[in-house]
């Protein structure tokens, strides 16, 4: 009697377990298929960048090339000047990241740690800019750049791009520095470290994760930026970035589709790889922004 009951309940447990396994397998299957389908446009661009022109038009939905036309990349890099655009984009991205990190970490540190006359005013100004209607401000910026003779240079893009992320970065660094224990700074000061040494030698190295978060955010925004480089390089085509170059390429000669696909891969691949390596910083930064 009891033996039967035990057997029955064991059978029920097994059935429950196997049902759960089926559900779990089905979930994985759906997520994997759904996820890969979600990225279909990217796979399609990658595959099409290696197709011949004929195959590009005949293969339709199929992203797989029959044989690999690596020459598309060579052509895009040299003839369509994507090599030059790549270098421009890289310089703008590195410059913007560097400027943003230095400027926002310093400001965030001061706002988090020191009391000085005018601090409230400064904080108020910074927060107010979040709520002011950002009108169509590109024209006055354009005008300003013209007057300081920075127009048609990569610097103009770097400075304006960095300024657009300055408030966000400062707030992130401020929050991070506020959460660091004061003891370390006190100890450093007792050991004779000045204001500068305390910041550059101790506090900045301690904020490594936040440097990665702000740096990655800025890098992605700068690399993908379209509007600013579009407007600031209207007069100098050789300063175009990848996104702007591609946009212009459609307008100039809208025939070479496979070359254009190679261009999209050249543009998208670096930032996707960078993201895959550093994604936890990016995701943590986003999550922190909502939870506050």
């Amino acid at each position: 009697m009891t033996a039967i009951a035990v057997q029955q309940s064991a059978g029920r447990r097994n059935r429950y377990r196997s049902r759960r396994r089926v559900v779990s397998l089905a979930t994985h299957f759906a997520l994997l298929i759904g996820g890969l389908a979600w990225l279909y446009p990217l796979f399609w661009a990658l595959g099409s960048s290696l197709k011949s022109d004929d195959q590009f038009f005949s293969s339709g939905l199929n992203p797989l090339p029959s044989h690999f036309m690596w020459s598309n990349y060579l052509q895009a890099w040299q003839e369509a000047s994507f090599g030059r655009y790549f270098l421009n984009t890289l310089l703008i991205t590195l410059g913007t990241v560097l400027v943003t990190l230095v400027v926002t970490s310093m400001a965030g540190y001061v706002l988090a740690r020191t009391q000085f006359p005018g601090k409230k005013l400064c904080l108020g100004l910074v927060s107010a800019t979040l709520f002011l209607p950002h009108g169509y401000t590109i024209i006055p910026i354009f005008d300003l750049m013209q007057r300081v003779h920075l127009l048609d240079s990569l610097w103009s893009v770097i400075i304006v791009q960095a300024s657009s992320g300055v408030v966000f970065g400062t707030f992130l660094f401020m929050g991070y520095f506020m959460a660091i224990d004061r003891e370390l700074e006190d100890a450093a000061q007792v050991d004779g470290a000045g204001f500068n040494q305390t910041f550059w030698r101790i506090m900045l190295p301690l904020s490594g994760p936040m440097v990665a978060t702000v740096g990655l955010f800025t890098a992605i925004t700068a690399w993908n930026s379209f509007f600013l480089p579009l407007v600031f390089t209207l007069g100098r085509p050789e300063l175009r970035t990848l996104a702007v170059g591609m946009y212009a390429f459609i307008g100039e000669n809208s025939t070479d589709w496979t070359l254009l696909c190679a261009g999209t891969v050249i543009t998208l691949a670096p930032i996707i790889v960078l993201f895959l390596f550093l994604q936890r910083f990016f995701v943590n930064g986003l999550a922190g922004a909502v939870k506050q």
Partner: peptide, 13 residues
């Protein structure tokens, strides 16, 4: 992943 891709380039694709 699509979030980190450039809207302009996605437009081209």
């Amino acid at each position: 992943l699509p979030v980190v891709t450039s809207a302009a380039v996605i437009g081209v694709v």
